[in-house]
Design a binder for these strands. Structure first.
Lengths: 243, 243
DNA sequence: CAGTGGTCTAGACCACGGG
DNA sequence: CCGTGGTCTAGACCACTGG
């Protein structure tokens, strides 16, 4: 029934999630793990891994001795914060039609704050990519991406800059993207930001992700700032007690 | 070597974390999983579970075919966002000495926004607990907790209110705390907030967690708002590509 | 007490990295 | 090529829930 790639666990997860969305389970209760395992022809461990991921996403609740239940409340969670997902997907999950607009992509000097995070000298020029994401044609996310030009090994077009950085890197830089170290920062909207994000006025609060991207050798290779209009896009998550 | 509770996985995790902190592994490289399993007298799966948790915490990096490595960068991450930890611990991890100050605990009417989240009628009076957390005697977190008084089944003192809600609930309400549904919100500091958090002026940006707590029957039982001074306390996390 | 999820084991095979 | 981490299996036992 399932192929070998992507991982069985991942396929089982998607499969179950789809059945939950389709409301195929009566009374908000899911079948026992053993039954799912038999049915899907995988081991119970694989089912449990898949259920575990659905649980951290807030889709289900599990209670020892009682069973596994579908969590309506968790539907409000649109993204797993510790997982990088394309902003288009986030916007779509939130119920809007996403579009991307490339505002600019040019090589320039940057604030020292940026070069510091990338372990570069302050006068180094970087490629700055500005992108605006729209939800139903309303601006919701503005991203600034800083890439050292000398890591780019293949020719690229302006259009390639529309790719998420973590896809651009492996395609054009002959190295792998490993992870972001991200900081969540609240910001007062400057007039520059307010204009681009179509805010009613400057001085409002914005949610910002300030992220440094590392490659598989654990060297910083990219810096990114994402500004969210939290009135249109809510960042929610499920938090549990430590085990 | 290990007991049965807390879980083997959790004990192995703590054990390895301590050895990492003590810099017991040369060259930033950890022994192979098989070797750790033999050494600690547990199965490789258990070791892998423990390493998996350390990886999401940012403590280590694993590369298929290459090995497991200690991640200096990850030291900047002080907390796992999807895990509830006491604010004192967060402050301590960030390098300060934590203290808690109970500002007030009284029954009052609350904004409709609060009663809505708890599925109560707007005129219901709730117990409001205000707490201030200090790092090296500087205010860093202000929390407001709203508890419906009728769920409290045991007598309690003012001092009991200093407990985190998720500990107060099981102790005084004869029910279990299951999880928070949290929303991350950027806020403009009001003068009321600025005064209590000792901010230089009102109008600065604050990071806020707006959370609804659910019990094991998946009913909302508590509402909490936490305001962070992000200049002193940074919220950082590791983000990876989806599998 | 029967049935559920929670934990742990031993073993197998695969995919990838580096010499 | 060998050794590493990544995935999956089958089976065992425990802890808890609910009738």
């Amino acid at each position: 029934m399932f192929k070998r790639s992507p991982s069985l666990t991942e396929q089982v997860k998607s499969h179950l999630k789809q059945r939950i969305i389709n409301a195929e389970f009566d009374g908000g209760r899911m079948p026992p793990e053993m039954e799912l395992a038999r049915e899907l022809k995988v081991s119970r461990n694989t089912v449990r891994d898949a259920l575990g991921r659905l649980e951290t996403e807030g889709v289900i609740l599990r209670r020892q001795g009682a069973g596994t239940f579908i969590n309506q409340v968790g539907q409000l969670v649109k993204n797993r914060l510790e997982e990088i997902i394309p902003y288009e997907a986030l916007i779509r999950e939130s119920g809007y039609v996403p579009t991307v607009r490339l505002l600019s992509a040019q090589q320039k000097q940057v604030p020292a704050e940026v070069t510091t995070h990338l372990h570069l000298s302050p006068d180094e020029e970087l490629l700055i990519v500005q992108k605006l994401f729209l939800a139903d044609d309303k601006p919701v996310i503005l991203t600034l991406t800083y890439i050292p030009p000398d890591i780019i090994k293949q020719p690229y077009t302006q259009d390639d800059c529309r790719l998420p950085v973590y896809e651009f890197i492996p395609q054009f830089c002959r190295q792998e993207f490993a992870y972001y170290l991200s900081e969540i920062v609240p910001l007062i909207a400057t007039s520059w930001l307010a204009e681009r994000l179509d805010l009613p006025e400057e001085g409002g609060a914005l949610l910002t992700f300030e992220e440094t991207g590392y490659n598989q050798d654990n060297q910083p290779i990219v810096r990114a700032c994402s500004h969210f209009r939290h009135d249109l896009l809510r960042l929610r998550l499920i938090r549990r007690l430590a085990r």
